[in-house]
């Protein structure tokens, strides 16, 4: 008869360990390195090593041009304005919807949820044309106003508010879902306990609900901002020709002006702004994990 001693068992266990976990993540990690990290590094190198008659040399000329060019700066400025306004509007619009969906038990809530998630299934291009047909010149609103003898509206189409309305509508589903998942962590009894000690609706929201979902708000806003800052379709179709948001600006510089060096510089600058919001998101996820 053979017996296994505890020592033998101990020596067998480490030998059986296989790097299955690492193998599972290896493919996506390699793809990220190849398709995301390397292009970023390559883009930064391309913008900093500019061609010269002698070959190439280190230069920050492309960045100097961007930050001294009035048109580029106004494009950056309109992008930051659109992103900021969209972030605020998304919070103002989505927080009440998420609160209603979390705390309402009526059948209406199910329909509201369906309606809030609906834009997720509508392609941006269809959304853009729907926007033009409703709010554009001679659109549905104009026709209805005309029918009751009211003057035409000042259409937001082809103004900075065009992309704002479109982008807010487009980002409502994701923002609502993230806020809703955060609100799921606020228990009914925690709310009832607050009401029991005397908290009214505002005190409840300010002292109990918002602190508990601050991480979700940060994640929702980070996601929205990342998408809006580099958005292309909606600003391209609904926005003004000048100034324009960074997405259409990059595309036009690359395709119409045949200036890839400047387009890549614009992309690196856009990436620089996005990474700040990305870091907010990463910090929030790390904080959640630690908790």
């Amino acid at each position: 008869m053979t017996m296994t001693t505890p020592d033998q068992i101990g020596s067998v266990t480490p030998a059986r360990r296989r790097p299955y976990g690492l193998l599972l993540v290896a493919t996506p990690v390699l793809l990220v390195l190849w398709l995301i990290i390397w292009p970023i590094i390559s883009a930064i190198i391309t913008t900093l090593w500019v061609p010269t008659p002698e070959g190439s040399a280190f230069s920050i000329e492309t960045y100097r041009f961007f930050f001294s060019d009035g048109y580029s700066l106004s494009n950056l400025s309109i992008t930051l304005w659109t992103t900021g306004v969209c972030a605020i509007l998304l919070l103002v619009v989505c927080l009440p919807i998420a609160l209603y969906l979390r705390f309402s038990n009526t059948k209406v809530a199910a329909y509201v949820q369906g309606l809030a998630i609906f834009p997720m299934f509508v392609p941006s291009i269809i959304l853009s044309f729907a926007f033009i047909r409703v709010l554009g010149p001679n659109g549905t609103v104009d026709l209805l106003f005309n029918a009751v003898g009211l003057p035409k509206i000042r259409t937001p189409y082809l103004t900075p508010w065009g992309p704002v309305i479109g982008l807010v509508w487009d980002n409502i589903p994701l923002t609502v879902l993230i806020l809703l998942s955060g609100l799921g962590n606020v228990s009914n009894q925690a709310i009832e306990a607050a009401r029991d000690v005397g908290a009214g609706r505002f005190a409840l929201l300010w002292h109990i609900i918002l602190p508990r979902i601050s991480n979700s708000i940060l994640v929702a806003i980070s996601f929205a901002v990342l998408g809006i800052f580099s958005a292309f379709t909606l600003p391209y179709i609904l926005g003004p020709a000048a100034p324009e948001m960074m997405g259409p600006f990059m595309q036009r510089t690359f395709r119409d002006l045949y200036d890839p060096q400047t387009a890549i510089t614009q992309a690196v600058i856009t990436f620089g702004f996005c990474i700040v919001f990305g870091l907010f998101y990463v910090r929030s996820v790390a904080k959640n994990r630690a908790a």
């Binding site: 925690a190 306990a193 029991d196 109990i208 508990r212």
Partner: peptide
């Protein structure tokens, strides 16, 4: 009367403490 206006104090089964 709503809970916030009542002279009652409730202790819940799940403690319902505010973790933040």
């Amino acid at each position: 009367l709503p809970p916030e206006k009542r002279p009652t104090g409730m202790v819940f089964q799940s403690h319902a403490l505010w973790t933040h």
